[in-house]
Every structure is written in structure tokens, then in C-alpha cells.
Nucleic acid binder design. Structure first.
Length: 110
DNA sequence: CTGATTTGACCTCT
DNA sequence: AGAGGTCAAATCAG
């Protein structure tokens, strides 16, 4: 992740912005939020990059989270999490084993 | 038929 | 014991 590509850093996504030029959103390791449902997200767009902290009442929209990211995701679980209005879906790589892909991701949606 | 999804049960951690 | 994460059998879809 080259820092030279960074054109914008902000605390929160721009409200109402259409993120149709997005490439991906990834949840970063964040030891400051090891407890609770919050997480630090990195948003990478064609000409924008920002970090934002997800709060419990913030929705990571489906179009944002399920954007094509080069992996084939297979859903393996869904849970209702406490203090969240919406269920959380769990995904992992389709070829987790024969390609050594250990990636998993969690998506909250409406 | 084969691979993906659904969904309740099960496991781990606190 | 409760909450979050994963498993796996049943079911669905191509």
C-alpha cells in the first residue's frame, strides 16, 4: 500500500458520497478497538483513500463490502450481534485450502 | 451432479 | 453463562 497514492485522509466517509469508483474496503487490525464492534477501515478508491472508524450504528453497505476484490468469497455463517440492528455475515475464500488463502471477512448489512 | 448457501449446533474465549 | 466465530448437514441453484 504505497502512501504516495493517498490523496485524502479523513475520519469518516463523506456522507452521501457515491463511492462508485471504489476498489475495495478492508478492515484493518486495530488494537485500539480490540473490544467492541468497532473497527478501523481502509477505503481505497480510484482517486481517494481514507481511513474511517466504524461505529456500531454505521453500516458498511453491501456495495461497499462486496465489491470485487479478486477473491471468491464463500459465505459460511451469519449471526446477530449484540447492539447491532443487522446480522453479520461471515465469508472466507472459496479456495481457502488449496491456495493457502486464510482471508476471512465480516459484513454487516441492512 | 457439483458447488454454494442456509441455519442451528457447536466451539472458544472472557 | 453469554457472546462471537465456525462447522456441517440440509437445501438450493446452475
Amino acid at each position: 500500500m504505497e502512501a504516495a497514492a493517498m490523496t485524502s485522509v479523513m475520519e469518516e466517509p463523506i456522507e452521501g458520497r457515491q463511492y462508485e469508483d471504489q476498489l475495495r474496503v478492508m478492515l484493518l487490525p486495530d488494537d485500539t478497538s480490540s473490544s467492541g464492534s468497532e473497527g478501523l477501515y481502509l477505503f481505497i478508491g480510484l482517486n481517494i483513500l481514507c481511513f474511517f472508524r466504524k461505529t456500531s450504528d454505521m453500516l458498511i453497505e453491501e456495495t461497499t463490502s462486496l465489491v470485487e476484490d479478486g477473491h471468491a468469497w464463500r459465505k459460511y455463517g451469519q449471526k446477530m450481534v449484540l447492539n447491532a440492528k443487522h446480522p453479520r455475515n461471515y465469508y472466507r475464500c472459496t479456495h481457502k485450502f488449496d491456495q493457502g488463502c486464510q482471508a476471512t471477512k465480516q459484513v454487516e448489512r441492512m
